[in-house]
């Protein structure tokens, strides 16, 4: 009862998060309609300050900052969402398989993933992208696969707890196949606790793509993307011009808004700890 109640009445922070996030989605979808100037259109001098004409000023080669940010939402959000979807598709499938298919499969998969996680993901991505080049497809596959290792671990640990429950044992004893057990018995019970994780992984991938773009290895010009825009305008900060802060702020607002929503989802199931009565 209380769960439904809090689902219908999100706290203020979650409401703010939802509004901000929807706003950016709106920008991404309708960018050509709402952006005052074109994505790659040079409209004025370099690094003009904010004015009525250019609300957020212009960038390092005189393009309108606001329009670039609106167009950038497409690439930045789209790539991060694609990475996260791919990583969940791979990670959840593998994780459930490891939990359901028995000890040998589990050991092989888990040890393999442990080893893949023994190199920091940024270093791994830098290596691969430097050698394979950063086309959009390479970028999405690389990040999606690397991130799926984390998702695998989580999905497996959740699924392992479900697989040992009696209702899964009942299905085994009934003679159900592997696929049926994964899809019908385990998956429906594993997904709800992973909703919050989806948000967190999205944030991580979003920041990760932004970081890679900032280092010049993520989304490549001429596409506008927020991380790349920070990189292009980075030098202006030494002159006291806040140009790189606008796209950086857009990145920050997006992650904060998703985190606020995730926080609310997590708090629905959280209970105060046992000792809180005495504290």
């Amino acid at each position: 009862m209380s769960i439904h109640h809090s689902l219908r009445n999100p706290p203020l922070s979650a409401k703010i998060g939802i509004v901000i996030f929807l706003f950016f989605i709106f920008c991404a979808v309708f960018a050509p309609l709402i952006a005052p100037y074109g994505e790659a259109e040079s409209v004025g001098k370099t690094w003009i300050g904010p004015s009525a004409e250019f609300w957020l000023g212009t960038d390092n080669i005189g393009r309108d900052m606001l329009s670039r940010i609106i167009y950038g939402a497409r690439m930045t959000l789209g790539v991060a969402a694609a990475c996260t979807l791919l990583s969940f598709l791979i990670g959840v499938t593998m994780g459930l398989l490891a939990a359901v298919a028995g000890k040998t499969v589990d050991q092989v998969l888990s040890r393999f993933i442990d080893l893949m996680l023994s190199i920091p993901i940024l270093v791994f991505a830098l290596m691969i992208l430097s050698m394979l080049g950063s086309s959009l497809l390479t970028l999405v596959i690389t990040i999606g696969v690397l991130d799926s290792f984390r998702v695998f671990r989580l999905a497996r640990s959740i699924a392992v707890n479900i697989v040992v429950t009696e209702f899964v044992e009942v299905a085994r004893l009934r003679g159900e196949g592997l696929w049926w057990i994964m899809r019908r018995e385990v998956l429906p019970n594993a997904l709800p606790p992973m909703i919050a994780e989806f948000g967190l992984r999205f944030c991580f991938n979003f920041l990760f793509v932004a970081g890679l773009s900032f280092l010049g290895l993520g989304i490549q010009p001429p596409f506008a993307d927020w991380g790349g825009m920070v990189r292009e305008n980075g030098r202006s900060i030494a002159f006291g011009i806040p140009a790189p802060l606008w796209p950086a702020l857009a990145i920050a607002l997006t992650t904060i808004s998703v985190n606020m929503i995730v926080d609310w989802i997590l708090s629905i199931n959280a209970r105060p700890s046992g000792a809180s009565a005495e504290m």
């Binding site: 944030c203 920041l207 900032f214 920070v230 980075g234 790189p244 802060l245 950086a248 990145i251 992650t255």
Partner: peptide, 9 residues
Amino acid sequence: SVPEFFIAY
């Protein structure tokens, strides 16, 4: 929530 370079800048 914020990227490293945001804090840095």
